[in-house]
Design a protein around this nucleic acid. Structure first.
Lengths: 152, 152
DNA sequence: GAAACAAATGTTATATTATAACATAATTTA
DNA sequence: TAAATTATGTTATAATATAACATTTGTTTC
């Protein structure tokens, strides 16, 4: 489960953080990108691209698939959101710019996703790639199952 | 890189292994399932579902998407192949029935995929899921990058 | 061996996810 | 301000996957 108590605050803090990062890196956080990021952050669960599109259409009726996918690309490239490969879905990044590798605990029952970072994981990835003389570029690590809350 | 020297032998051995497992578990390794498994094992690289369908059509012109997807489902469920989530692609399992978790080193240059198992990975998965009181059901662990051969 | 049932496959249609390609608008740079 | 770059608009379509129902094949029971 997410530790978020006041989601409005939670979203605002994230958006501030993202704004700051964009300023630092001279990235353009346009109206569209802000809107989509806000929509993704509506919940701590994941969103499907076409659901996002439907929501965006409420504000911007002309929105079309490329509108969404291009925006998702920008947000992913810059580490503001993640794609969950095993679900073809997208989720806001819990701590933008603070980590490289992370993994996801995906609850099949409540749909919640916990984004985790761990030195152990990093070490295992490093040690195995070094051992295989493999130059890693992108790590996908997703564990689906049942979370603490839903286990009972 | 794969350690396979003689691919014909390699395929035959795998198919024998799969046959044996099917007998043990009373699974029906039908003509169709054998054909598809053989097609997947044609290379040590991955296959896309619709490419597989095209190949199957050479033998069985009536084949259609559900033909492939149902067969893939059977092969995945029983651990004979894996789905590579980050590529929407499928690959033969290097050691059917011999492991639970495994991870994949995916070379973006030569398209080769190395299937790896490691106690370390298992331990990390176990320790993190235990810590989070999470009951894991399916682990997706895919590292894409550049392999030893292609790195130079 | 025929009837009843279950499992696998056939078949049609369509849902879901994603991108190519080219046009226009907005912004930055020279 | 012209030229170049970046972002967005727009149309069309590609790529991936499943639902739903029909038929066939295999298995079990009588």
């Amino acid at each position: 489960m997410s530790t978020c108590k006041n989601h409005k605050t939670c979203v605002n803090e994230t958006l501030k953080k993202v704004e700051t990062i964009c300023k630092q890196k001279e990235l353009k956080l346009t109206k569209l990108r802000q809107r989509v990021l806000k929509l993704i952050w509506k919940s701590h669960s994941y969103v499907k691209a076409y659901d996002l599109l439907e929501e965006l259409k409420q504000i911007d009726p002309a929105a079309k698939p490329p509108t969404i996918y291009r925006t998702l690309d920008f947000l992913i490239e810059n580490g503001f959101i993640h794609k969950i490969q095993s679900l073809n879905a997208y989720i806001g990044c819990a701590h933008p710019n603070e980590h490289k590798e992370c993994y996801f605990l995906i609850c099949k029952k409540c749909q919640n996703i916990e984004e985790c970072c761990s030195e152990k994981i990093d070490k295992v990835v490093t040690s195995t790639t070094v051992k295989n003389n493999f130059k890693p570029n992108q790590v996908t690590f997703e564990i689906s199952g049942v979370c603490q809350e839903c286990i009972n």
